[in-house]
Design a protein around this nucleic acid. Structure first.
Lengths: 146, 146
DNA sequence: CCAGTAGGTTGGAAAAAGCAACCCACTGCC
DNA sequence: GGCAGTGGGTTGCTTTTTCCAACCTACTGG
């Protein structure tokens, strides 16, 4: 960081410090797909094993995932999402929807069934009024608004 | 990529190829905040100028932003979001909400007013039934589901 | 004339990523 | 018993990125 700049305080930046490195969100994606073991995550993401090991350590330290021993001698672990990790699902849904619309419009690679019986089409809405969040957002407030 | 692996086809991965590098989403964030010029984006994100220039080129090539000439001699540009870029707002809202909850629970740095009059609390819901998207999602389908 | 603003580019150093190879402790399998 | 295979890494070395400071050009204002 150049010494004279003071970046905007921002939860987006803070979140990206935790999960914004390459492979981190793809590892989380695999946990949502039910792949809980190192080799499977490595295969399905394409991450090299050393980098993946580092990312899993960092996600664990950040409280996004938890290791569970499923074999002693030799110690073997499965990786599971914490509650905080599960809440990253909203980020993944937003990323997936954008890619489905703008990069894979002809053939979305993955869709999810929703409990209502339909294929899930995730939308971000205002919890108060239920209308689309983005179009109605205006006037930022707080120490990061300037 | 190790030669024998075939990563999961996935719009999340594809989207991250476009906007997943460091600083890219923060630059987009600044455009949402109404900061459209190079120096402002550099200051508010903390990105170094060479990297920021490269990121803006890439975002432009990907159709996320558009440059607008506002001065000839010397040529000077403002950066503006395209429609595709505006749709990344949902990703930013999801990232911001996660950070507000898990990293800045005591003092969220930025909130947005919503057109309904309340402070925006963005939630991701199923477009069909209106219920939370994440909890109800199950059974992935498509060539990326395995 | 001089400082400041705007939008970069260049050079060199430091950090991160990538990949193959190795390692250890098992579990079958013949 | 021997030998391959699986799971979960770590090590060593090379290639990419990133970072930062410094520089450059073309104006504008005082």
């Amino acid at each position: 960081m150049p010494k004279d700049v003071q970046p905007r305080p921002c939860s987006i930046a803070d979140t990206l410090e935790v999960v914004g490195e390459r492979w981190s969100l793809l590892a989380v994606r695999e946990l949502f797909h039910g792949v809980h073991r190192f080799d499977g995550i490595a295969r399905n993401t394409g991450a090299s094993r050393d980098i993946l090991a580092a990312r899993l350590r960092k996600l664990e330290a950040a409280g996004v995932i938890r290791r569970k021993l499923y074999s002693e001698h030799p110690p073997r672990y499965e990786y599971h999402l914490t509650q905080a990790g599960r809440e990253l699902g909203d980020v993944l849904l937003a990323l997936a929807k954008w890619g489905d619309r703008h990069l894979n419009a002809d053939d979305p690679p993955v869709r999810w069934h929703h409990s209502c019986g339909e294929l899930l089409d995730p939308v971000v809405v205002c919890a108060t009024c239920g209308r689309p969040a983005r179009e109605g957002a205006h006037s930022p407030v707080g120490r990061g608004a300037r």
